[in-house]
Simulated assay, not measured.
Amino acid sequence: MNTSILHITNGDSTTQYLQKLNFKGDFITWREMLCEGKTTSDVGSESFWKNRFEFLKNSYNVSKQKFINYTLKEYRNLCNQKKQEEIVLWFEYDLFCQINMLAVISWLKHYREGYKISLVTSGKVAGSDQFLGLSELSENQIENLYKNRVVLSQDDIEYADYIWQLYCSDSPLRLETIHGFNPMSPFTYLEDALKAHFLRFPSIENGLNAIENTILKTVNENKFATKQEMLRYLLANQKNYGFGDIQYIKKIDELKKLFTASFNPVKLSKTGKQVLDHQLNYYPQIRSESAYLGGAKKYSFLYLSDTKKLLKIAS
């Protein structure tokens, strides 16, 4: 019956599920997608939120009022929560959640020093290769995770903050070399999530990243009557990105010239097939100076598939 707990969750579905299961305490829902667009390390500052609003407005047509009501009001509520004895973080295994988790821990390091902070993470299910989100778990599964939650040490908090700082830097190269150097970390899924992050930089082979190439390959190998049918397939078969439909819709729109005009049925255009077969490099056509992954410009680096390393492009 302890009510001196603050739960910070990865999304509304988790919050609603925990409340349905009568978890005691106060709830904050972290409503951001910091894996997308430019980020700065000063989580919660005026410039941080201004930068995030500009990205969401320009990329997803989010209105100022919606941003205030959906994200900022919840953040301000978080700022007012200071009385609890423990802060419990609820985040999942995928890139989307892991980057948000780093940002929240960084904020807690700077604004809730000395508080007891613990972590509940969902992912691989025992006895199966299946990965599940928090709201997909049974009542027993989620209660067991909660019972066995990991209390973060100061070293854990410092480590998460350091990885966040590197994610927000203007180069991913140092993050690439250091992200796997902490095998004792309680952040079980962070290394794989960051590997997925590096794959989001354009490949040297055709200028598209792993997600974009997967979209083309999926269309080439399957028959989809409509764009919506393709979208459902992509969402169901993504690995550890954790993206929603709006991220994939935006990505498909950026690649629209690689599809035939109608999308009914969905087929690759001649150019799309050439790009997929590495006969044409699409980098010049898709390159954008405003595209960021964390603090780095997306098109200032190339991913080398043979070495699985990033290469900085000389400016």
Rank of each mutant, 00 (worst) to 15 (best):
K64P: 00
M101K: 11
F67G: 05
D306H: 14
Y299Q: 01
L137C: 12
E176I: 04
L145K: 11
E86P: 00
E205C: 07
S290E: 14
S4K: 14
K20L: 15
S122V: 04
E191W: 07
F53D: 07
L108G: 03
S290H: 12
D26W: 01
E205Q: 13
G244E: 08
K297N: 09
E221W: 01
P284A: 03
R31H: 07
I99A: 04
A193I: 10
H179T: 08
C97N: 15
K116W: 01
N80R: 15
G127C: 10
L190V: 10
A296P: 03
Y167W: 09
F53M: 09
E221A: 13
K239H: 13
T71Y: 01
Y167C: 11
E229S: 13
F301L: 04
A160E: 08
T39R: 06
S315T: 12
P186I: 10
T177N: 10
F224K: 03
L234C: 11
L231E: 10
Q285G: 05
F23E: 06
L235N: 01
E54P: 01
K195L: 14
L276F: 09
V275A: 02
S63D: 09
G37C: 08
D26S: 15
L56S: 10
T29V: 09
N209H: 09
K66H: 11
F91R: 02
K66I: 11
L134C: 09
L276W: 07
C35Y: 06
E136A: 15
N61Q: 15
W164H: 15
R287C: 11
S13K: 11
N240E: 12
V219A: 07
S153M: 05
L280P: 02
K227H: 07
P202E: 05
E158D: 15
F23P: 06
N58Y: 07
D12K: 06
S47Q: 13
E54G: 02
C35P: 02
K109S: 10
T3C: 11
N2Y: 08
S288A: 13
I8F: 03
Q285E: 14
Y162C: 06
S128Y: 10
L173A: 08
R76K: 15
A160K: 08
F27R: 01
E176H: 12
F198D: 01
N100I: 05
W164M: 12
N61W: 08
V150R: 12
L234M: 13
R149L: 09
L145P: 08
Y17L: 15
G123Q: 03
R200H: 01
E229D: 11
E86M: 01
N144K: 14
R232P: 00
Q84W: 03
S13D: 10
R174D: 12
H110F: 04
I313T: 06
T260K: 13
Y292D: 00
N77I: 03
N10F: 04
S118A: 09
E212Q: 15
N237L: 06
Y70H: 13
L134F: 09
V88Q: 11
F224R: 02
I28E: 02
L21W: 04
K195G: 14
L276E: 07
K116C: 13
Y70D: 15
N140K: 15
R287V: 04
Q130P: 00
L310Y: 03
M33Y: 12
Q279A: 06
M230C: 14
F131V: 11
K217I: 06
F263R: 01
N222M: 05
Q141L: 10
